[in-house]
Design a protein around this nucleic acid. Sequence first.
DNA 1: TTGAAAGCGCTAACAA
DNA 2: TTGTTAGCGCTTTCAA
Lengths: 354, 354
Amino acid sequence: MTPGMGRGAGPAAPRSADVAQLAGVSRKTVSRVLNNEPYVSAEARRRVLAAADELGYRLNHAARALASGRNRSIGVVALGTAGYGTASLLVGIEQAVRDAGYALRVVNTPDGDPEGITGAVESLLEQGVDGVVVSEPIVEGEVSLRVDVPVLFLGAPPAFSADRTVTASVGACALARAATEHLLDLGHATVHHLAGPRRWYASKDRIAGWRAALAARGAHEPPLVEGDWSADSGYAAGLELASDSSVTAVFAAGDEMAIGLIHALREAGRRVPEDVSVVGFDGNPVFAYVSPPLTTVRQPFDAASREGIRLLVHAIEKPDAELPPTSDPPVELVVRGSTAPPPSLQDQRHLQIT
Amino acid sequence: MTPGMGRGAGPAAPRSADVAQLAGVSRKTVSRVLNNEPYVSAEARRRVLAAADELGYRLNHAARALASGRNRSIGVVALGTAGYGTASLLVGIEQAVRDAGYALRVVNTPDGDPEGITGAVESLLEQGVDGVVVSEPIVEGEVSLRVDVPVLFLGAPPAFSADRTVTASVGACALARAATEHLLDLGHATVHHLAGPRRWYASKDRIAGWRAALAARGAHEPPLVEGDWSADSGYAAGLELASDSSVTAVFAAGDEMAIGLIHALREAGRRVPEDVSVVGFDGNPVFAYVSPPLTTVRQPFDAASREGIRLLVHAIEKPDAELPPTSDPPVELVVRGSTAPPPSLQDQRHLQIT
DNA sequence: TTGAAAGCGCTAACAA
DNA sequence: TTGTTAGCGCTTTCAA
């Protein structure tokens, strides 16, 4: 094959040797300029840049990767769902990765099952990524996998063993606790929880936060209701919960489930927030405009992905250094119209006024 | 550098030569097995596979890319937003790309401006992708860029010249037309349109569909209102539209804008759908559970991305063959509770009954 | 059906 | 500050 003639019949793509020749320097000097290495005279640098520009030179990353052993790319294993949460996380990751000067490779695991994750990581490793991000994994049981690059677990504890593992989280546990405490503060005797699928770490975190808040106040812990993040499943859960008149407050593990839940509650004749208060989880801004506007906690997707990528890049570039200290992301409760004091307290106030 | 000693102090990563040695064949035979090439005896194949498995061999994609000139990867230029639409599209693309046996690289263009797209494509080209997907671009003016691989424009006409260009779309124009016609069929004299930012091709398509429907019925075309896809901007537009009592039907170019719009309308004392009907655009299932449930058109993200990637892969693998025929995606109108006949017709019916 | 030799375009180590 | 040399791990000739 003629070099550079891969596609169509255009002229051969210029190589670093062409640039070197035109600039009148050696290939190594071209390499130095392109990699911002020191020990290049300003004059040589200028000439190389001018020659590269004139030729329309484009560095061949595959060759660089092969020669240097480093790829400057990070792979992310994402969930194949288009929810607000997962999408926000992916956007944040892309940005942070690009800012760090790395390329991003994405593999989805539609079902998020362990084999799926293993296969996805494996394929990223083959592609030669310098680091891997496992975003919101679903894991039952340990996955064993030989990984020789740092791995970042976003929103979950390490799901398999790797030489260098870093974690960062959105602080879901603290957020769930804040959501539950908000309801308790309003005077509700206890708070029901509409959780995500139990297989997800994200669900576990939120359940843990909810439990902690309940326990701290000595509140009775009602049985858990489980959904699948969808509004449909929230609706189904709402049908169930509506038949129990003792339910006055529900913390849903996702905004969309909360919306479905409220719909079912209202169809069953229970008013929100007068009879039942509902808190969501995520912070999708569109739900400020539904009726009632949804009280929720905002997940700091941006902060978490930025922080996580910072740690990952650190682990990649300084394998032997200590990890820099990390700070917990802020907890942000967005109080809107779907929460109110329980009916009992509302009545009391009403009687006092009368 | 000792081969394979890049990270940590583990044993050297096995190379194809190691596999060849263990299997007792040549490196070329290993290569043949790994690439599913013909002319390998079953026995040789078995031995190679066994050796690879025993060694935990992982193919080095960078080396393959360098030697073969092909990368088996596709790059996508996406928008750095976490909206339901863009996220759904990206998920669909990833799936289709993976199914086709390619790896996916992602670069976002936060602002979607022309320079952003140019830079993003450039960086993908450096990474050696075999094809590029430009997803829902925003373009004002032509971007000129030397691209020597096929480019797929998803939901937009070619934004810059490339040797081989393919396009696929969600059929936004037909969808917008269907949404508008639904309103017209209900008896509304005309339909207002809350458009997306004018710089987006996606907005233009929807405007064109809306106009076509209006023109076909001889309906008067009211002035356009422009939002930025957010619920906030829909709310702002709703405030504006609410003051005009002649408005009885609005087609919003996005579900979220529609939700904001409805909220503003109701705050201003106009009932939905009794006084004003609203149709959204996207088909996010969560909006079946708000009040009123949102009538919308569903974008066939999956079909469009699948079709687009099919064309792109065809263009990559058979550069000289004709493109296969393409079919228009289906138009799916989801009628829910946010649309009804205009007040005038409701009154008439009422009078007749009385 | 198989193998030997020659690169792909770049960077690393060393020498100048 | 610069250049020379020798690979990186794979695929591609082309010959056996």
